[in-house]
Design a protein around this nucleic acid. Structure first.
Lengths: 245, 245
DNA sequence: AAACCACCTGTAAGAAATTACAGGTGGTTT
DNA sequence: AAACCACCTGTAATTTCTTACAGGTGGTTT
């Protein structure tokens, strides 16, 4: 990839202001790279019980329907890889898939016209998890070379795609209701480390009552009923981070 | 960057088996790109009170000492950017830095011989957070072009660097003591969502006693004393994820 | 057959968290 | 001067969690 192509890519994403703009960019670039279909699926956690799923797609609907109806995402070997890594996986490199179900999923994908592809994981700062995949709908000569070539490219493409999705859907705008004071965050951090109110009071040189006061206020601002939920929500929203930075 | 260069990069990182190997690779590639110094700082959270900091560096010790002694990481505008984004920041683009302290840090960096640079954030699946920076120790002609050229490259370099650090330091090997049963994880996930034992018992169609049993076992396996800590530790270790995948 | 494991259940005492009452200080903004 | 905010403190009733006691079932591995 030439520097001018990269600059062009960055520029094009910077211009996009709607999901339609983004989809159009994906189609163009996928086609240019020689791929037939693509999908970007992004999981934005809102709580531990559920997450918002956002998709940008140019993908066979028949396969997607089949995929979600059968909850294939639970065993998909591509997802297994993406959950653990930062680098793309070429489908042919999945090798002997460890689980029976995983094997079946990849075989069925082939039947639905996905004859090969490459998938790139995207991990955001506060638990956002995305996968960008580009696929081929028939066996081609030079298929492996084509996928190989896409490998460095998909790194860059997925990063700017993700940033653009964040911006366009305003996922990066922090909720004003979630503004905690320094003391409240401090108490929450120690709570997340298993400290009791009394223990935190000793650490912060104040009374147990005051710690309960700050934690009660935190729970009220976070709109939760107990400390477990407060800790989980604060982590998901990036309100508390592991020290030191 | 040519495809052959990319393949060479991947190959070289695949060969690295020690931190010395990794450092050597960084030196080589930085020099080739025209930069004078580099540093990779990785935060691996072990709890919310503290994290393990791993560095791979070819950087002025005088600046690092000064930096950490004054806890500059708390206000560093580069860190502020990297905490929120997936794409690199060219130091000259930091623009009018919002805080007085941030301004001061960047000015002092210049005095210590860091006259420009580019930094790439790395976000791992379970809260690992790294920054890879390459810097110049004097004003050069063509400096901006040099940094521009590094932009696509540093994306790829940082990803493979991070994967290699994970492998070499065995950060990717899950702790055997942290293997929870399906039921234990299910209870933990609902706990993280603020449900009480009684509420979870209704959701899972079992007795409150059983929920307490599973949560007690979870806490014992995670080596923690209460539910807040269990939730936080499970999240940091990727033991529980937001549904659906 | 024995050992093991995931899963399940009950009772009870004590510790911690939750909610509600009521109140005060020092600093900044309007 | 008044309003506001972050921070702080006390008492008390109620709920929830934590720990400890003791026990049973069904399926898989050794």
């Amino acid at each position: 990839m030439k520097l001018s192509d990269f600059n062009e890519l960055v520029f094009q994403f910077a211009q996009a202001n709607t999901t339609e703009d983004i989809t159009r960019l994906c189609v163009t670039h996928c086609t240019k790279m020689g791929f037939d279909n693509f999908i970007y699926a992004l999981r934005v956690p809102t709580s531990f019980a559920e997450a918002r799923i956002i998709t940008i797609k140019g993908y066979p609907d028949s396969w997607l329907t089949h995929y979600f109806e059968n909850a294939y995402y639970l065993d998909d070997p591509v997802i297994v890889h993406c959950k653990k890594h930062l680098i793309p996986i070429q489908w042919q490199d999945l090798g002997p898939v460890s689980t029976e179900m995983g094997e079946r999923i990849m075989n069925e994908a082939t039947e639905f016209g996905l004859k090969g592809g490459i998938s790139m994981p995207v991990h955001g700062p506060t638990g956002e998890f995305g996968i960008f995949s580009m696929t081929l709908n028939e066996q081609k000569k030079m298929q492996l070379e084509l996928i190989q070539q896409a490998s460095p490219y998909i790194h860059l493409f997925a990063a700017y795609l993700h940033e653009t999705v964040q911006r366009v859907l305003r996922l990066d705008v922090p909720d004003k209701k979630l503004l905690l004071t320094a003391r409240e965050k401090e108490c929450l951090r120690w709570t997340a480390d298993g400290k009791t109110s009394w223990e935190i009071s000793q650490l912060l040189n104040t009374s147990e009552r005051t710690i309960n006061f700050h934690l009660t206020n935190s729970m009220s601002k976070l709109d939760v009923n107990n400390r477990q939920h407060a800790v989980a929500k604060a982590v998901l929203h990036g309100i508390i981070n592991p020290n030191p930075f």
